[in-house]
Amino acid sequence: MKLFKAFLIVFTWLLSNSLLAQNTKVYSRDKEQIYPEYIQVDRNILVENYFQFMDSLVTVYDSITSYTLTEHLLVRNNPWIIDTLQNTDYYRMKARDSFVYNQKKMIVIPKGNRIRLPDSHSADSLNNVFNHTQIDINIPEFKLRIFHDAVKMYEFPIRVGRNEKKFLEMSGREEDLRTKTGTGSIVGYNKDPRYANPANNHDYTVTRRDDKKITLVPQIPFIETELNGIRYGQMIHPTTNPETLGKAYSNGCIGTKEADAWVIYYYAPVNAKVTIRYDLRVLNENGDIVILKDIYGYQ
């Protein structure tokens, strides 16, 4: 039986074509086992096959680790991956005098890089962080914050839904485009999202950037939320036009910068808590109360 398991592990490594590694002794779920501490990448990984590659690693190593391995655990244990993904942002590349027409062809994990596999202590620590992470969105403030307990980890500018009602072909009825409030959680992702105009339900594969240049749409996960037990189809996703951030501009979804969307994705696994609120009284950096504009006319 032990020989069969060893053969199965080696065969799966070879099949994945990505697992030349340095070995170290750890504990598997049922007995002491040898498996790589590092995974050495033997080819360039592009955005377009990044998720398939990560899924293959999770499939291979989840069978031999002492904990349940996930993509979020693997990436959070290697924060440089998030940094690299953030740098596929069109506007970051533009600031470096580089025009990117097709983000999917960008290299996100270069050949020769090593990915560290979490040990059981690191996995437990990260899972504890996930369990105490909350996404907080204040609509009239146009801000999304990520908290670990009461400690703010990140703050990002966003755009929110417009203050109007409109017939959307995608849903087949008139919709209130204002972003919905409530408490709930992250319930899923779309890692290769369909880009469509909700008004006419037409797909589009290219986008006009703020600098008026045309590019293909990027591949960045859309994050699905559930509020008060209801799935409104209200996603957290990147916008290719950051000039719209700080505005009531969308069809109800929460829009972010491309770079910020990667951080939110990896800091908000499924079941992470989400609060979307409409608070006009907020504190500024000096601790003074500020009254925000009532963009939806609620008060």
Rank of each mutant, 00 (worst) to 15 (best):
I146Q: 02
L177C: 05
N138G: 00
Q299D: 14
T275Y: 09
G255V: 04
F7K: 15
P221N: 06
E164I: 11
F222P: 01
N49Q: 03
Y278D: 03
V100E: 07
L8I: 10
V282F: 09
L117S: 07
I82E: 00
L280S: 12
Q33T: 14
I146L: 15
V60E: 03
N102E: 10
T24W: 12
H72K: 06
S125E: 14
K105C: 01
V26N: 07
S28T: 14
T59K: 13
K105I: 00
Y61P: 08
K25W: 09
K94W: 05
Y154M: 07
F11E: 13
N23V: 15
P118H: 03
P79S: 10
N228C: 12
L46S: 03
N17C: 14
W80Q: 10
T240P: 04
Y249K: 12
L85N: 02
N138K: 06
E258K: 04
V290F: 00
G252F: 10
Q33G: 09
S122M: 13
I264Y: 00
D42A: 07
Q86V: 00
W80S: 08
I291L: 11
F147W: 11
K257M: 13
T207A: 03
D119Q: 09
R43Y: 07
N131Y: 03
K111R: 12
I223G: 07
L15S: 12
Q52R: 13
E174H: 02
Y154K: 15
G255I: 05
T244D: 07
I64Q: 07
N284G: 05
L73G: 07
S63Y: 04
N251A: 13
D42P: 01
N102K: 13
G255N: 11
G182N: 08
G233R: 09
L144K: 06
N200Y: 03
G112I: 04
A6V: 12
G287K: 03
